[in-house]
């Protein structure tokens, strides 16, 4: 099975990514008390191998927060995974800004909290826009290879499809020279729910 998205659907998804990441950037800025820059978000529908390359260097070590979000009435097949990826240096400077020791239990929980706040505010905006019930689950913090994190999430979300939908935006914390990737990785069921609510049914 190969799913394709047409330009109109990708535009709508890009708009969702833009609203979600804009809300997330505002929330992060309030949390840190500093300006947060936001690059123009992308909505990419790519073959799996290319999806991984589009996100970054698979071998690079990253700090990551994985926040699964249930979509709709709790059907496990419909989910959006919010994924935050930071360099180690950026994770450390965020911990310092929040006054906690990096790579400690407290540091990890602070990163998880950043993931929580960004993810919850982004999906809150999406829920308002689409009228869908979106349930964030507890965040999971891990330090590992970028490819291992992203491919494992994609394997779980994309399943048997050959095309991965990647909605990503890059956030920059000013005065801390810290950039992070903010990704929304919906399951096929999750995309169908989102597009359905926007009147752009995924079944083509």
């Amino acid at each position: 099975m190969i799913t394709r998205y047409d330009e109109q659907q990708l535009d709508a998804l890009r708009e969702l990514a833009s609203i979600g990441s804009g809300t997330a950037a505002t929330a992060l800025s309030q949390m840190l008390g500093r300006p947060v820059g936001l690059a123009v978000p992308r909505a990419l529908a790519l073959p799996l191998a290319d999806a991984l390359d589009a996100v970054g260097e698979p071998d690079a070590m990253v700090a990551s927060v994985v926040l699964p979000v249930g979509v709709g009435d709790g059907d496990a097949a419909a989910e959006i995974v919010v994924l935050l990826l930071f360099s180690y240096r950026c994770a450390a400077s965020l911990c310092e800004l929040l006054g906690v020791e990096p790579r400690s239990e407290l540091g990890d929980s602070a990163l998880g909290e950043i993931g929580n706040i960004l993810g919850a505010s982004a999906v809150g905006a999406l829920a308002q826009m689409t009228g869908l019930a979106l349930e964030p689950q507890p965040p999971h913090v891990l330090y590992d290879m970028l490819g291992a994190v992203v491919a494992s999430v994609l394997a779980a979300t994309v399943g048997e499809l050959d095309v991965a939908l990647v909605l990503d935006a890059s956030l920059t914390v000013e005065e801390a020279s810290c950039g992070m990737s903010f990704l929304l990785l919906p399951t096929v069921g999750g995309v169908a729910e989102l597009l359905g609510r926007l009147g752009l049914g995924a079944e083509k």
């Binding site: 699964p68 994190v149 779980a156």
Partner: peptide, 13 residues
């Protein structure tokens, strides 16, 4: 590997 050991959601299940 089991990357998300301990997470409750479907990515781990």
């Amino acid at each position: 590997a089991q990357m998300f050991a301990g997470a409750r959601a479907s990515v781990a299940g």
